[in-house]
Structure formats: structure tokens, C-alpha cells
Simulated assay, not measured.
Amino acid sequence: MNELQEKILALLVAKFQGVRKDGLQQLAAAIGLQVASEEEANQVVDKLTADKVNGFVTEWRRTADAEIKKANDTYEEGLRRKYDFKEKNTPDPNSAPDPNKPADGGAVTLDAISKLIDSKLKGVQDSITTLNADKVATSRRELFVAKLDEAKVDGRQREMMLRNFDRANTTFANDDDFNSYLTEVQGDIAALQQEHADSGLQGHEKPIFGAVNKDGISSGVADYIKARIAESENKTLTGKEV
């Protein structure tokens, strides 16, 4: 067993005390082939129940015992034939070979045990797949929310965009598919922000007398004041007619 499988075995032994260790070793080896880190192994072991583990070990032990018994019977039969031991109803050695007997003369095969492990661990594999998918979905949603926060999208518009994302989050085939969706959404957000900005500008009325200068006076008012000042000065300079 490698280091990860040994850690898994330790977890199984600690959690399922009293269960046959050889069965737990087989379960640890099988789980070790499905996970990539100790963290994932902990999560898988946490989801296992005593009933599932006992059922796995019982089925594995029954299959293993049957394979061992078959090998021993074949080995004993080989000895009888080799040393001319005979019993009643012993099959004729010249008859066709039994197709059900191992071709290697009694070596234990693990085919049946491997099939049992595959069938019993299907639920474990499904749990790992679901766990990984949930991690990816959560990470993508956090990134999407960060983009909304960055663009200061709030209110009903934010709720609507989050609902649409949650529906789409289960359909992304891979990271490229998700990034393509995120790029499109960023374009939509930019377009909405521009529309809001344009709408805000249209809501402001133009000054009646034109644009204002640095003193806050419109050009029309400034011209009017200049004209009145000039008119007043002309009247002051004009003397009384003789």
C-alpha cells in the first residue's frame, strides 16, 4: 500500500472498529485509486456508514473465500491425479477439461474480487464526482459575484443575473465554456452601465442662457450684463446739449 492508502486505512480502522482489517485494507486500496489527496479521502470516509462498510467487507470476504476454496480444491485434485489417488465418482482424467477450473492449475485470480470492488465502490465514485462538481460550481459562482460587485450591479438587476447564472452553472462543459459565458456577461454589464449613464444625461435640462463659465454664470447672462454696463457708461460720458 502507498502512503495515501495507509492513511485511508488508518481512518477506516479508527471509524469502523471491530471490522475485519483485511476487508478494510481492500476498501482502503480501492478508495485510494479514486482520490488524489488526503482531504478528498477524509470526505469520502466521512460519508461511509457502518452498514455499507460491513456489507462491502462481507461480500468481499465471501468472494475471496470462494476463490480460495476453488483453488485449494483444484490443487488437491491435481495431487490425487499426480499420485494416483482415487475416490469414488472421480472424473475420468482422459475426459475433456472442465472449463470452470483455473487454467493455471489453481492460482488464485482476483477477477471476481475486482468486479465486486467496482460494483461496491460505484457509490463512492459517484460521491467523489458530485463533490468535485460542487466545488467547481461554488468557485465559479464566487467569481461571478465578484464581477457583479466590481461593476456595482445591485437591486433587481443583480438578482436577475444571479438567477440566470445559477441556471447556467450546471451546464458548463468546461472552464473555456464558463469563461466564454463570463465574457459575454461582462459585455452586457458594460452596455447596461452605458445605457444608465446616457439616460442620466438626458434627464438634465440645458441652461436657459447657455453653458456656465468658471464663475457659475451662463454666457447669455454675461453678455446681458456687459451690454447693460456699456449702456450705462455711454450715458455717463454724454454731456448736456447746449
Rank of each mutant, 00 (worst) to 15 (best):
His196Thr: 09
Glu76Tyr: 08
Thr238Ala: 12
Pro93Phe: 08
Asn54Pro: 00
Gly203Met: 12
Lys147Gly: 02
Val44Ile: 15
Thr170Tyr: 00
Asp176Met: 04
Ala96Asn: 05
Ala173Val: 08
Lys115Ile: 02
Thr129Cys: 00
Gly105Ser: 04
Gln157Val: 11
Glu231Met: 07
Asp84Thr: 02
Leu201Tyr: 07
Ile225Arg: 15
Gly78Met: 09
Glu76Gly: 05
Val153Ala: 05
Ile217Tyr: 14
Ala227Ser: 14
Gln193His: 02
Lys15Ile: 06
Ala197Cys: 00
Glu6Tyr: 07
Gly78Phe: 06
Lys122Ala: 09
Arg167Val: 07
Ser232Gln: 11
Glu6Ser: 14
Glu233Leu: 15
Gln17Gly: 06
Phe16Pro: 12
Asp176Leu: 06
Met160Tyr: 11
Glu241Arg: 14
Asp118Asn: 13
Lys82Asp: 02
Leu33Pro: 00
Gly203Ile: 01
Gln194Lys: 14
Gln26Tyr: 04
Gly123Asp: 13
Met1Gln: 09
Ala103Val: 09
Gly23Lys: 01
Glu3Gly: 02
Asp118Gln: 12
Ala211Lys: 06
Asn169Leu: 05
Gly18Trp: 03
Glu67Lys: 02
Arg81Val: 07
Lys235Met: 10
Met161Cys: 02
Thr90Trp: 05
Asp104Lys: 02
Ser219His: 12
Lys226Leu: 11
Asp149Ser: 09
Gly55Met: 03
Gly239His: 14
Arg80Leu: 07
Leu24Ile: 10
Gly55Ser: 11
Asp46Trp: 02
Gly18Ala: 06
Glu76Ile: 10
Gly78Ala: 04
Leu116Trp: 08
Ala112His: 10
Leu162Val: 15
Leu27Lys: 08
Val124Asn: 14
